[in-house]
Amino acid sequence: MTRPTQEMLAETEYPITTDELIERHGDRRIDLDDGAETLREILTRTAAETYERPEDAEYAIYSAVSEHAIGRKGYSDRDPTPPGSPHGPDQVSF
Rank of each mutant, 00 (worst) to 15 (best):
E37L: 13
S63P: 01
A48I: 09
P54I: 06
A57L: 01
A10Y: 03
G26C: 12
E13V: 12
E49M: 09
D77P: 00
V92L: 15
D34F: 14
Q6W: 01
G26W: 07
I22K: 01
F94A: 09
Q91L: 14
T12P: 00
Y62I: 11
M8K: 08
Q91V: 10
D56V: 04
R78Y: 10
V92E: 09
S93P: 00
F94C: 07
M8R: 10
T17G: 04
R28C: 01
E37A: 04
V92H: 03
G26V: 12
I70E: 05
E41Y: 05
M8H: 04
P86L: 13
S76E: 03
R24A: 13
Y14H: 05
E11Y: 08
I61R: 01
V65M: 15
E49W: 02
T44E: 15
H25R: 07
A10M: 07
A69Q: 10
P86Y: 07
A69F: 07
H87V: 06
D27T: 13
A36F: 15
P15W: 05
L39N: 01
E37C: 04
A64R: 05
F94I: 14
Y75W: 11
D77Q: 11
D56E: 11
R29N: 05
Y51L: 00
S85E: 13
L32A: 08
I70W: 05
Y51R: 00
T12L: 02
I22P: 00
D33Q: 14
D33Y: 13
H68G: 14
M8C: 06
T44H: 06
D33M: 12
M1S: 02
Y59S: 07
E13N: 11
E23D: 14
S76C: 07
M8Y: 02
I16G: 00
R24T: 10
H25D: 02
T44P: 02
D56K: 03
R45E: 15
M8A: 05
T12W: 02
P89Q: 10
Y75C: 04
D19A: 15
R53T: 11
S85N: 14
R53C: 02
G88C: 09
G35K: 13
L21T: 02
S85D: 13
E49L: 01
S76D: 11
H25K: 10
G88Q: 08
E11P: 00
S76T: 11
I42Q: 03
E23Q: 12
S93F: 14
P80D: 12
H68Q: 12
D31M: 10
F94M: 08
S93M: 07
I42M: 11
R29S: 09
R78I: 13
Y75T: 03
T44V: 13
T81W: 08
L39K: 01
P54F: 06
R3G: 00
S66K: 09
E7D: 15
T81D: 13
V65Y: 06
H87D: 06
R3D: 00
A64N: 04
G71Y: 05
P83G: 12
S76Y: 02
G84N: 05
T12S: 04
D33I: 15
D79C: 09
A64V: 03
P82L: 07
G35W: 13
R78L: 15
R40M: 02
Y59G: 01
Q91W: 04
R28S: 06
P86M: 11
